[in-house]
Design a protein around this nucleic acid. Sequence first.
DNA 1: CAAAAGCCTTGATACTTTCTTGATACTTAT
DNA 2: ATAAGTATCAAGAAAGTATCAAGGCTTTTG
Lengths: 230, 230
Amino acid sequence: MDKQGGHVLIVDDERAIRRFLRTSLSAQGYHITEAATGEEALTATVQSTPDLIILDLGLPGMDGVEVTRRLREWTQVPIIILSVIQDEGNKIRALDAGADDYLTKPFGIGELMARMRAAMRHVVTNISDPIFKSGGLEVDVVSRIVKVTGEEIQLTPTEYDLLRVLVKYAGKVLTHSQLLREVRGTDYQDDSHLLRVHMSNLRRKIEPDPNQPQYIMTEPGVGYRLLLEE
Amino acid sequence: MDKQGGHVLIVDDERAIRRFLRTSLSAQGYHITEAATGEEALTATVQSTPDLIILDLGLPGMDGVEVTRRLREWTQVPIIILSVIQDEGNKIRALDAGADDYLTKPFGIGELMARMRAAMRHVVTNISDPIFKSGGLEVDVVSRIVKVTGEEIQLTPTEYDLLRVLVKYAGKVLTHSQLLREVRGTDYQDDSHLLRVHMSNLRRKIEPDPNQPQYIMTEPGVGYRLLLEE
DNA sequence: CAAAAGCCTTGATACTTTCTTGATACTTAT
DNA sequence: ATAAGTATCAAGAAAGTATCAAGGCTTTTG
């Protein structure tokens, strides 16, 4: 269904199963990381911050339930358990340890992917938008809404894109070509006049006094930078 | 495990199964409401605001998938599907319609309860008001009735879907392709002309003055967004 | 079964907003 | 004072938007 599915960590001691999952999921646009043991799974979760974990129950050493428990001490990432064990007690233990779903092998890859989509839905729907704030400036990049001292501001696509890139690298200096490249592609990356016009329009809309910028600072000879404030 | 488990709506046309579930879940401290048909399920969800819904797939009339779809138009309440059908396609359809889990009969009551606990862990939000209001606009997403300043308005299916998606993401900017995808599927997501015609028709029906929209704002170069008021 | 009604889709056209370009003034450092 | 870089204004070009109307499809009705 949806391409660009996100990042999935596959934990299984059997190489064949990892390969099967990697192939199937990659084809659907998921980005894959693999781990073969429980310990590896824990470090891989920290390092690669997956959007979902597929976890085999029967790992050597630290088993799936224990891995789940350890993960749930600090993260809410969706976990889907795979297992050959049909036993109800096992399912209950795994789910109560914090797993989101439990699937017995053999399973259909279509069903697994449907359950993955279901598990990942929870995360997005329940978390409110991350909002960038600096002084009186607020940028909600999910809703695409910009406010200055509580008042909503209307920006053109280019102006908004410019601001979005500045927010993305807030506090850091962005060169003219970096900004142009991110906003209008490589073709325009030398047209700094164009950038200045758009920047002027953007400032007129968000700066209380464009002559004395409060948010977007000019770095002469280099580019611009968005000020970070508490 | 947990007593005082919350409020569960059981939807099944077989009285025996409803009774079995009611008995088992009541013993665990859950408060139970029952429904025998899809239509009853929809009204019961509004009236009793359950924390979780157990939904049989094979209902007479409106089936479980359709009930799920209708519920997901406005609420995120966890839905666990029960079914005698093992077929993978059925599972995928139900999960993609918005169900949280799918359990085939016969099932262990212990597993069901573990899956219920897992499903309820996700939810932070309560059931929202199924009637959206903003200024003089009222959208009842359960009965699909739209009113402007108290007057009922007749919308075509496409117009209603468009409005429903706008309501679902009220206050947020929706791009043309997002709107088209939710309303007509991925095939049409580039046909922005089509979107404009429908949007124009919708506005003619709900906006007092389509030249100066009060509800549906155009975000030039991006898409549309439904205004939130008080 | 045919006619009518309603809806979706497409094309044409007028309209609005945004982008780009050129001209001009300003700032800062040498 | 000059040169290089920066900011702003204004106008034409380009892109995006709103609306009307006609044709085709499906569903409802007589």
